[in-house]
Design a protein around this nucleic acid. Structure first.
Lengths: 143, 143
DNA sequence: CTATTCTACAACCAAATGGTTGTAGATCAG
DNA sequence: CTGATCTACAACCATTTGGTTGTAGAATAG
């Protein structure tokens, strides 16, 4: 089903499009509106101080980001919110939250470990570990 | 304290900057890295196939979005993740989730109400309510 | 049928974005 | 002190973005 999209790995391009689409006040407002009710494109266009074509483009950006979808009804095109799209954006931020907690746990572990195995060296409250980049030799630096 | 920022209302410009900052693969990677460890700007620059100045600009974008902060240490500038920034982005998506559930509840209420008060009109499974824009007369249309 | 409405799309424009190179000031290593 | 490293910032460039107007087709209203 469509829900499979949620389990799928989020590609960089997909995330670029998602956050790019959310990075505009008008577009965020459109997402809110079409979540609560149904709007045609011209119905949306009537709400903002810009041309129909501009709103049409905003809807297109949201559609490419899978945040909304359109459905023809007669001569109107009805815009609906796509819940999966929002969920994918939420997923990424949740992953960041997990990473953050990992970091916090790691720091806590380091502190505990140092405190138990080497009680002599814990005179200063060094909570930073100072690994600017020396422990990760990725990238270039081929010189 | 700094945590007050989380309670404060999210301005449009702030959200623009937040999502705009997240809408780039390199910048999302920087956020991940500096969440797990500490990096100087040049330490970050060594990881990507672009110039130091380009990475410097990416960090500046993240800083303006309050997603990271810099701290001088000698001649290096240490980049750290700013947890509050991420939390603010999460908050907006959570709000969207709330709105979505409100919509779902409203639809459920409408269905239930129609079923109880007017059982004769429930012959067709009309779950859409068809309010294209006629019930909301905002915006211009000043003709 | 005719006029209106809604949509699609092209062409154009100004400003922002993402990259580059170059220059210059601080700080550190020897 | 001298040289290397790290950062800041300006100037420049190509592409994208967010807006415009204009044209054209399809569906609806009268």
């Amino acid at each position: 089903m469509v829900v499979d999209q949620l389990r799928a790995q989020l590609s960089d391009e997909e995330l670029d499009r998602l956050f790019q689409a959310l990075a505009d006040t008008t577009r965020r407002d459109i997402v809110r509106r079409v979540t609560l009710g149904e709007y045609s494109v011209s119905g949306l266009a009537a709400l903002y101080a810009m041309s129909f074509a501009a709103v049409q483009k905003h809807v297109a950006v949201l559609e490419r980001a899978s945040l909304v979808s359109k459905e023809r009804r007669g001569r109107e095109q009805i815009v609906r919110a796509n819940h999966d799209g929002l969920q994918r954006a939420r997923r990424l931020l949740d992953e960041y939250e997990v990473i953050w907690r990992q970091r916090a746990d790691r720091i806590a572990d380091l502190l505990a470990e140092t405190a138990t195995t080497e009680p002599d060296k814990t005179e200063t409250g060094k909570k930073d570990t100072r690994n600017t980049q020396s422990n990760k030799t990725e990238g270039k630096t081929e010189g």
